[in-house]
Amino acid sequence: MNLPVILCIDDDPHVLRVILRDLKDKYRNEYRIIGTTSVKDAFVTLLDLRNKGEAVAMYVSDQRMPEMEGVAFLKQAIKFFPEAKKVLLTAYADKEVAIHAINELRLDYYLIKPWDPPAEKLYPVIDGLLEAWQLNYRPKFTGIKVIGFQYSRLSHEIKEFLSGNLVPYQWVDVQITENSEEILTLNKLELKDLPVIFFADGTLLIKPDIKQIAEKTGLSPELKNEVFDVVIVGAGPAGLAAGVYGASEGLNTLLIERHSPGGQAGTSSRIENYLGFPAGISGAELTTRALTQAKRLGVQFLSPAAVIKISNHQGYKKLMLADGRCINTRSIVLTTGVEYRKLEVNGIEDFTGAGIYYGSATTETMACKNKEVYIAGEAIPPDRRQCTFPNSQVMFT
C-alpha cells in the first residue's frame, strides 16, 4: 500500500524546496511528500490520486499565488480529499486573510513564513494535525473499482468476468453507495457513461467491452510461440488438469478459455467430491490453485478468446479465433464443458444479467440481501437456502 500523501504547493521554487526539505527530513518514512509550483498540476495530481484510491493527509498551500490564491485552492482541493488537513503559508501581511479562512474554510492552521527553526515552529504543528488525521484514517481499496447500476447487464458482465478470472475488484453501486457520484463529478462523467472501471494506475474505461478489460488486466497477452505442441480449448477442471500434465512433460502448451477459468465448478461455493480434498474446497480456490500451478509450469493462458473454426494445414491444426487470430498446433484437446439451458420465456433476454441470473451468480449474492429471490429449479439443498441468500425471502419454483 502506498504511503499517505502530503501535498505542498508554492509558486516560489525556493520556498517550495525549503518546505519539501523540512517535511521530508521528519516525515519521509510515514508519508509521501510531493510538491508543485503549479495549481493546474496540483489538480491533475489530486485527480490521479483520487482515481488510484490513494489518500492525502494534508495540504500545505501558499496564499499568494498568481494562478489562484491559497484559500481558493484549498476550497477546490478539499473536494478531492475532504478529510485532509489544511495548512496555509502566509506572510505577516496576510494574517487577517488566514484568520478569516479559519472560519470560512475551517482552515486547520496557518504558518507565517519563515518557520525557522522547524523543530520549534513547524514540526509540533504538523505532528498534531497528522495525529488528528490518523484517528479517522481508514485505508481505501486501491485496486480495480467498478462503478455502475446494480441492474445493468453490462455491469453484471464486467463483474462476472473479473470475479471469474480471479481479478480482485470493488463494486460501487452508484444508487446506494455513499458519495459514489463524487468521483464521477471529479472526472467530468455523467450517469449515462456508466459503467466505468477505474484501474490501480488511475486510468479508466467508460462502458468497456470484455476484450478491453482483458487487455488492460493482462489476461489477453501476446503469445510467445508460433507453433504449440498442444492447445487446450476450455479451462474448466479438465482443461486445467490437461494443461498441467502437458506442461509438466515439457510440451509448449496453450490454454484457451472463452469466458473465465474454472468453468461451472469455478462458480461453486463448495466442492466435496473432488479428488484430494476430503474436507471440500471452494470452486474459486480450486481454480486459483490449478491456474497458478499451470502457469508455474509454463502454460500460456488466453482469455477471453473463442475458437470459431478448426482446420488442417500442412500437417498442423489451425485454430481460428473470433478476434481474427490464427493459432498453429500439433494437437488439440477439447474440454468445452457444459452450457446452461436457458428459460424459454418471451422477453427474458431483456433482463438476463439485469435481475435474472443463471447459476446463482456469486457476483450478485450481496445484492439479494433483504430481497425476495425466486429460483427456478431446486439446485440448493433446503438446509443451505438461507445461508446462500442471507435475510432474504427465497421462493422456489
Rank of each mutant, 00 (worst) to 15 (best):
P221Y: 04
G280M: 00
F141P: 05
A247Q: 02
I332L: 15
T36S: 15
V87W: 00
I348V: 10
N2C: 05
V60T: 11
I210S: 02
L186Q: 13
G70R: 09
T90D: 07
V56W: 02
F149M: 07
A55S: 15
G239Q: 06
I144E: 10
K79V: 06
L3T: 15
Y137P: 08
L74Q: 02
I356C: 14
F228A: 03
M58F: 01
T142R: 12
D25S: 13
L20W: 06
V307D: 05
G218E: 00
E364K: 14
R138N: 07
K75H: 10
P117W: 03
P237I: 11
G246S: 15
G276H: 13
R64A: 00
L3H: 11
S260N: 13
Q293N: 13
H156T: 07
Y169A: 02
A376E: 05
L255R: 00
D116Q: 08
D173K: 05
E83P: 06
F43Q: 05
V5A: 06
D116G: 07
A361Y: 03
L89S: 02
P195Y: 10
K192H: 11
K318T: 12
I176E: 14
P208A: 04
V299D: 09
K145M: 02
N51T: 14
I147K: 03
T177I: 07
T36H: 05
K188E: 15
F161Y: 14
E160Y: 07
V97H: 07
K95Q: 10
S268T: 14
F228H: 00
K26Y: 06
M395C: 13
T336N: 12
E181C: 07
N225K: 08
W133Y: 15
A200L: 01
T217Y: 01
R138T: 13
K159V: 06
R384K: 09
E272D: 15
Y374N: 03
T142L: 10
E69I: 10
G128E: 07
A284R: 15
I158W: 01
V174E: 05
D41H: 14
V18S: 11
H259V: 13
V60Y: 00
R258W: 09
Q314C: 04
R384Y: 02
A119Y: 01
G355E: 04
P382C: 05
